[in-house]
Simulated assay, not measured.
Amino acid sequence: MNDAVKAGAYLHHMVLRSPDPAKMAVFYADVMNMPARQEGDVWICEGPMRRMAFIAGDRGLASAGFACRDADALAMMRARVEAEQLEILPPEGHWFGDEAFGVRDDDGNLVVFGLSSHQTASKGVRGPLQHLTLASRDPDAIEGFYVGKLGFITSDYARASDGRTLALWTRSNHEHHTLACFRRGRQGIDHFSFEAGDWSVLKEWCDRMGEHHVPIVWGPGRHGPGNNLFIFVEDPDRNWIEISAELEVIYDRPSHTWPAEDRTLNMWGKAIYRD
């Protein structure tokens, strides 16, 4: 049943719509150490183990690409999607090949599964693209899609006293979460995260933000679910970027439910609440 986990799927790249793709590319090139290039109408930024593309449009998520372990794992994911009778969509063509395929979740977000191609080694501060967190009016439907239809596993919940799901964290490999969701009055991106590895690398990122005069809008702190250290900054489109370290690795444990309180989102201090 847990096909996404068996496939070892991980967040490989993201494609964002922006009113000013060139401005976004400059920011990610300079601040996030992801050199930019333009291919037609698409701006592409790549750094060590992180890949982003920007296209013109209203601010939002165009697609998120998850790479599978190998061709057999990708075939297993495709078979799962076909068994669930989901519409199979063509992938965007920035990194994955013709073997890739896409599906849309209940909120209309396009998720693409494919195989990673070799990336030329590049220098710079570490920080692979690590997870995507969605905003949704119905996080239970998001869980139903990713867990019920694609075979992710729910690691943790945050629930209100009346039982409503306020947030959930799901995984498609051994990391605590590769896709999460917060209940909000809108749909799309809540935030996305780059993994710094450990506290010393997170401090390097903090220093880098200071050098580029980019304020840290939340953190440093430590989340309850996932136990990861974090900072948050904003890009020119005011997307929240999280840089985190020391995310929990899970091999076998049941999901846990956290209360709706500050310590769930930040064990060191105040939380940023959504709706």
Rank of each mutant, 00 (worst) to 15 (best):
Q187T: 13
S63H: 10
V147Y: 00
P91F: 02
I189E: 00
R186K: 14
A196P: 10
R17A: 11
S161A: 15
F27N: 07
M52F: 15
Q119P: 05
A67L: 01
D70C: 09
S172Y: 04
R50I: 11
V111L: 12
W169P: 01
G226W: 11
D98C: 04
F152R: 05
L179Y: 03
F152V: 05
E99G: 03
G226A: 04
A7I: 02
L179K: 06
N2I: 09
G185Q: 13
L61D: 03
V112R: 07
I44A: 11
A100P: 04
A53W: 00
G144E: 08
F145P: 05
F232M: 08
H12P: 01
Q119A: 14
N109V: 13
V111C: 06
R37F: 10
E82D: 09
M1N: 07
S244P: 00
T257N: 13
R37C: 10
Y10V: 09
S244E: 13
R208H: 08
P35F: 08
D41Q: 15
G210I: 07
A67K: 07
A83C: 12
L132E: 08
G151W: 06
Y146Q: 03
A245Q: 10
F27E: 02
V249F: 14
W95H: 01
R69K: 15
M49A: 08
G93N: 15
